[in-house]
Design a protein around this nucleic acid. Structure first.
Lengths: 344, 344
DNA sequence: ATTTTTTATGCAATCGGTTGCAAATACAAA
DNA sequence: TTTGTATTTGCAACCGATTGCATAAAAAAT
């Protein structure tokens, strides 16, 4: 049954000769309404094609049932997987998602933050831009007690929940693995070191070196944007190094794979001459040859977890202020690119 | 300046000793309000930390400034890129995005459609699920004159705008290219043939064969889900064929790359023994070895275009009913995987 | 039959902007 | 000074659902 103009509870009320209040209560299964009335109302609602008006509802309840998501870039394996996980949980719980990208710029991140604030999202999920260096733009949320959950790229802040993996441990493990394979001159490629993820990975790398009795060397640490382009640049740079590394641990698979290609094309053998390891377990890591040793990052699960916690908090089932950090399980995946012993 | 409770236009009105109507008009730059008053209001608004309440506004205006997006899966190169493009345009025009995924099931697609309808999106952008076979669930939108734009996976329907590429032409070109390289037994791997994109690509493949004087052979057409997994399966299947193809044109890079790997691992040379071509120009196509010949699909631009047209329609700048189909430029990209002559 | 308790429903205010129409004020022309 | 016109502003009725409180109706207790 379809109508040209919207049916409201008043229309239903008039039709059933009862009050709008009763209709409203019947529709949301209020305990004070008799079963028979509820049934009558619900049937009439379906029959007349009633659809509830969320704005009226939100206006009255001062709640939006909408969650904002701000990510650096939508089109990356990690982000799209995480968002897929978020969407699933949000959808299951009746929440809508408003998504925007900072395109790796704080400036846009701030603008998005404001938009989200004005849209009155009930909560916010954020992975920080490449160059975000403080949290001031989130203060409005904290001030109003709107929960903010950071995932992956986070900022230590007692007012929010962080969902992450143990970047330090994984980087440590992967570096140790390279050392165990006999590598002695291990290079590390990181992203902006003020971002937790890259700082932690770098720290893991350094500690693993130290624990194995190696000394950290400045020239073996390179910071770049970890993009396809950056990977190619990196490859060229390595080719020009007089004293080449015998292993490269890159903080991201896409960059690693693109770098590997340059090195390989130049005639070096991988892992024979130079071993490689990446991070993320991006599908690309299973295609590039030799297959890339990496860290299995639970992207989808991270999205689910972050969303679930946010929603639990909103519904009062959980408390963001009691939980301050969630660390998901992740582990290194060894593939041919780092197996010096066995070769490819 | 921050307050504990929200500032409304009434607060501003009281503070400035004018009416709420004047405040409302001043804030949205209504022509009937004097410059001086406007300025006073706008300054006070900023100073008192006023933020407009969208629900009240939407409730009154019966418009949401929100656009719904339904896609099969968020975590694919094509979709995430397209959404990135959409988000950019939407954001620039003050629209919010509500995104949901059908996970390739009509059932969930229908559910999402209903959610979007109830959220009263101003317009809808859709790429259909794998198994959607009719448009009934969009009728509510058409009935209410809510514009629906389909992209990539579309359905011919006079009531909506379709944004696509020339799948037929590209498939024809790529098949012809394979023929020109000397391939005589070209296999085609398609997705569900009721989906326009796959049907068109298949048609292009067949016509190119015909025009070159080859006969289409049933056993050389395989339909699968075009996933990573399907690619691997496909590889195994080809290995078992007694009369192997000398070229494989897959409707999707991810599937093609994974298939290639199996074939290669089994000791066949590519393109020597079997040439390969894919579709999409997914980053993976530049990593797999040999690099994959494919079709450069303007994902990001398609997202932009679809969104721009939808918004133009909503603001009355364009008319969806006059434009029924937009075809974006796309072209084949020849790489080593199909160059029989030169080899890799 | 009367009072008490329980259950079911309605009244009316509220959420915060928007906007058609009327009224007030300003400014110009006569 | 008066009348006419243009410019500003305000009144008040929406938009549709929610909910505290009051009342009505039904059931139970006395």
């Amino acid at each position: 049954m379809k109508e040209d103009k919207e049916i409201t509870i008043y229309d239903l009320a008039k039709h059933l000769k009862i009050s709008a209040a009763t209709v409203s209560r019947s529709l949301k299964d209020h305990p004070g309404i008799s079963k028979s009335t509820k049934k009558k109302v619900q049937e009439a609602a379906k029959e007349m094609g009633y659809r509830s008006n969320n704005f009226a509802r939100n206006l009255r309840k001062q709640k939006t049932n909408t969650i904002g998501v701000i990510v650096p870039k939508l089109n990356s394996y990690f982000v799209s997987s995480a968002i897929a996980g978020m969407e699933k949980i949000a959808n299951e719980n009746g929440y809508n998602l408003i998504i925007s990208q900072s395109l790796e710029s704080v400036k846009k991140e701030i603008a998005n933050t404001i938009t989200m604030f004005n849209s009155r999202v009930d909560g916010l999920l954020v992975s920080l831009a490449y160059d975000t260096e403080n949290m001031e733009h989130f203060d409005v949320f904290f001030d109003k007690n709107i929960p903010v959950v950071f995932f992956d790229r986070v900022y230590e802040d007692s007012r929010s929940l962080n969902v992450i993996i143990d970047n330090y441990r994984n980087a440590y493990d992967i570096t140790k693995h390279l050392i165990d394979e006999g590598c002695k001159r291990i290079m590390h490629i990181a992203g902006n070191l003020t971002r937790n993820v890259y700082a932690e990975r770098c720290r893991g790398y350094k500690d693993a070196l130290r624990d194995a009795g190696f000394e950290f060397q400045d020239e073996l640490l390179i910071v770049n944007e970890l993009s396809e382009e950056a990977g190619k640049e990196l490859g060229k740079k390595i080719l020009q190094m007089p004293n080449k590394p015998d292993a490269v641990f890159v903080a991201n698979d896409v960059c690693a794979a693109n770098c590997m290609q340059i090195i390989k094309t130049a005639g070096y053998s991988i892992p024979g001459d130079i071993a490689f390891a990446g991070f993320n377990n991006d599908p690309i890591s299973k295609i590039v040859e030799p297959h890339l040793t990496t860290v299995n990052y639970p992207c989808y699960e991270m999205g689910e977890m972050a969303m679930r916690n946010l929603i639990d908090h909103l519904t009062g089932d959980g408390n963001i202020s009691t939980t301050n950090k969630i660390i998901l399980r992740s582990e290194i995946v060894v593939r041919a690119s780092s197996l010096k012993g066995k070769g490819q």
